[in-house]
Amino acid sequence: LVRYRTISKIPQITLNFVDLKGDPFLASPTSDREIIAPKIKERTHNVTEKVTQVLSLGADVLPEYKLQAPRIHRWTILHYSPFKAVWDWLILLLVIYTAVFTPYSAAFLLKETEEGPPATECGYACQPLAVVDLIVDIMFIVDILINFRTTYVNANEEVVSHPGRIAVHYFKGWFLIDMVAAIPFDLLIFGSGSEELIGLLKTARLLRLVRVARKLDRYSEYGAAVLFLLMCTFALIAHWLACIWYAIGNMEQPHMDSRIGWLHNLGDQIGKPYNSSGLGGPSIKDKYVTALYFTFSSLTSVGFGNVSPNTNSEKIFSICVMLIGSLMYASIFGNVSAIIQRLYSGTARYHTQMLRVREFIRFHQIPNPLRQRLEEYFQHAWSYTNGIDMNAVLKGFPECLQADICLHLNRSLLQHCKPFRGATKGCLRALAMKFKTTHAPPGDTLVHAGDLLTALYFISRGSIEILRGDVVVAILGKNDIFGEPLNLYARPGKSNGDVRALTYCDLHKIHR
Rank of each mutant, 00 (worst) to 15 (best):
Cys122Asp: 01
Ser220Cys: 13
Asp137Gly: 09
Leu206Val: 05
Asn386Asp: 04
Ala423Asn: 01
Ile339Trp: 04
Asn310Glu: 03
Ile91Ser: 01
Pro163His: 03
Ala291Ser: 04
Pro118Thr: 15
Lys111Met: 11
Arg74Phe: 08
Cys417Ala: 09
Pro82Thr: 07
Tyr384Glu: 15
Val357Leu: 07
Asp404Cys: 02
Gln379Ile: 15
Ala235Thr: 14
Phe378Arg: 04
Pro441Cys: 14
Lys215Asp: 03
Arg349Ser: 10
Thr445Trp: 06
Ile405Arg: 02
Lys84Ile: 04
Leu78Ala: 11
Thr385Leu: 03
Pro419Trp: 04
Thr203Val: 11
Pro441Met: 09
His162Ala: 14
Leu355Ala: 13
Cys126Glu: 01
Gly123Arg: 15
Leu206Glu: 01
Glu196Trp: 04
Leu176Trp: 11
Gly281Ala: 01
Leu176Cys: 13
Phe333Ala: 03
Leu93Gln: 01
Thr437Cys: 07
Leu78Asn: 09
Ala449Pro: 02
Gln127Thr: 03
Leu323Met: 15
Gln269Asn: 03
Glu314Pro: 01
Ile146Trp: 01
Leu343Gly: 08
Val159Lys: 01
Pro309Gly: 01
Pro369Gln: 07
Val100Lys: 01
Leu414Ile: 09
Tyr329Glu: 15
Gly303Lys: 01
Gly191Tyr: 03
Leu374Arg: 01
Ala99Ser: 03
Leu188Cys: 10
Arg358Gln: 07
Leu207Asn: 04
Tyr350Asn: 01
Leu110Phe: 08
His162Ile: 11
Thr300Glu: 01
Gly281Asp: 01
Met328Phe: 09
Ala125Phe: 15
Asp137Trp: 01
Asn154Ser: 14
Pro103Leu: 01
Val180Ala: 13
Gly280Glu: 01
Pro117Gly: 08
Pro82Lys: 04
Ser283His: 01
Leu327Tyr: 01
Lys215Pro: 01
Pro398Tyr: 01
Lys272Thr: 01
Leu201Asp: 01
Ser308Met: 01
Arg205Tyr: 04
Ile144Pro: 01
His364Ser: 03
Asp268Lys: 11
Val210Cys: 09
Tyr350Ile: 01
Arg373Glu: 03
Asp257His: 06
Pro441Lys: 08
Leu292Cys: 01
Leu431Thr: 02
Asn154Gly: 13
His169Leu: 01
Ile96Trp: 01
Met433Asp: 01
Asp404Gly: 02
Lys418Ile: 05
Tyr274Leu: 03
Leu134Gln: 03
Leu266Val: 01
Leu323Ala: 05
Pro419Asp: 05
Ile77Ser: 01
Phe228Ala: 09
Leu230Asp: 04
Val393Lys: 03
Phe108Val: 01
Ala242Gly: 01
Gly193Asp: 04
Asp133Cys: 01
Leu279Asp: 11
Met231Glu: 11
Pro442Gln: 14
Pro184Cys: 01
Phe171Gly: 08
Ile138Asp: 03
Gln379Ala: 08
Ile324Asn: 01
Gly422Arg: 08
Cys400Tyr: 10
Leu207Glu: 01
Phe190Ile: 12
Pro419Ser: 12
Phe435Pro: 02
Ile183Trp: 05
His364Tyr: 04
Thr76Cys: 04
Val226Met: 13
Leu176Pro: 08
Leu129Gln: 08
Gln68Leu: 12
Leu129Lys: 06
Ala182Leu: 13
Val86Ser: 04
Ile324Arg: 01
Thr290Cys: 01
Thr385Val: 03
His364Phe: 04
Phe228Val: 11
Gln415Trp: 05
Ile183Leu: 09
Lys425Leu: 09
Asp404Ile: 01
Gln341Val: 07
Val226Pro: 06
Val226Gln: 13
Pro117Leu: 12
Leu431Glu: 02
Leu355Lys: 08
Ala449Asn: 08
Gln253Asp: 15
Gln353Thr: 10
Glu376Leu: 11
Glu112Gln: 05
Ser105Phe: 13
Thr300Lys: 01
Ser105Val: 05
Tyr97Asp: 01
Arg356Phe: 15
Val210Met: 09
Val289Arg: 01
Ile248Cys: 01
Gly426His: 02
Gln365Glu: 03
Pro128Val: 15
Ile244Leu: 04
Ile198Met: 07
His162Trp: 07
Cys406Asp: 01
Leu413Gly: 01
Leu299Trp: 01
Ile146Asn: 01
Phe420Val: 02
Thr424Phe: 02
Asp268Ile: 14
Gln341Gly: 10
Ser326Gln: 07
Gly443Asn: 10
Leu355Asn: 15
Leu431Val: 06
Tyr104Ile: 01
Leu263Arg: 01
Glu157Gln: 14
Thr385Arg: 06
Thr385Trp: 04
Lys395Pro: 03
Ile177Tyr: 05
Gly334Val: 04
Asp404Met: 02
Ala107Trp: 01
Pro70Asn: 11
Tyr384Cys: 06
Ser326Gly: 04
Pro184Thr: 01
Leu78Thr: 05
Asn312Cys: 01
Val212His: 07
Ala348Gln: 13
Asn310Gln: 04
Cys400Leu: 07
Ile166Ser: 01
Phe333Gly: 03
Pro398Asp: 03
Arg71Pro: 12
Glu375Ile: 15
Leu236Ala: 01
Trp174His: 03
Leu93Asp: 01
Gln253Val: 13
Leu374Asp: 01
Ile144Ala: 01
Gly281Lys: 01
His162Arg: 13
Gly173Cys: 05
Phe296Arg: 01
Trp382Asp: 01
Glu121Ala: 14
Pro398Ile: 01
His73Asp: 05
Ile96Arg: 01
Met328Val: 09
Asp178Val: 01
Ala338Val: 14
Leu227Lys: 01
Leu209Phe: 12
Leu414Gly: 03
Asn156Gln: 13
Gly267Tyr: 01
Ala291Val: 01
Val132Arg: 01
Gly305Lys: 01
Arg218Trp: 05
Phe420Thr: 01
Gly164Thr: 13
Val307Ala: 01
Asn154Phe: 05
Ser345Tyr: 14
Leu409Ala: 06
Tyr384His: 14
Thr150Tyr: 01
Gly261Phe: 01
Ser301Glu: 01
Ser345Met: 13
Leu428Trp: 05
Asp178Lys: 01
Leu292Phe: 01
Leu93Phe: 09
Met322Val: 04
Phe83His: 15
Ser194Phe: 15
Thr113Gly: 14
Phe363Thr: 13
Asn310Tyr: 01
Thr233Met: 11
Gly261Arg: 01
Asp133Gln: 15
Val160Glu: 14
Leu93Lys: 01
Val136Asp: 03
Leu206Phe: 01
Leu236Glu: 01
Leu90Ala: 09
Leu374Met: 07
Val136Glu: 01
Arg342Ile: 05
Phe296Thr: 05
Ala330Val: 02
Phe363Val: 10
Thr113Asp: 05
Pro273Tyr: 01
Lys285Gly: 04
Ile198Thr: 12
Gln402Lys: 04
Ile244Val: 08
Pro398Arg: 02
Arg205Leu: 01
Ile189Glu: 12
Tyr288Gln: 01
Arg371Ser: 10
Ser297His: 01
Ile189Gln: 11
Leu279Ser: 13
Ser326Asn: 01
Ala291Lys: 01
Phe363His: 11
Lys434Leu: 03
Leu187Glu: 11
Ala69His: 06
Lys395Ser: 12
Ile237Phe: 05
Glu157Leu: 14
Val168Tyr: 06
Thr347Arg: 10
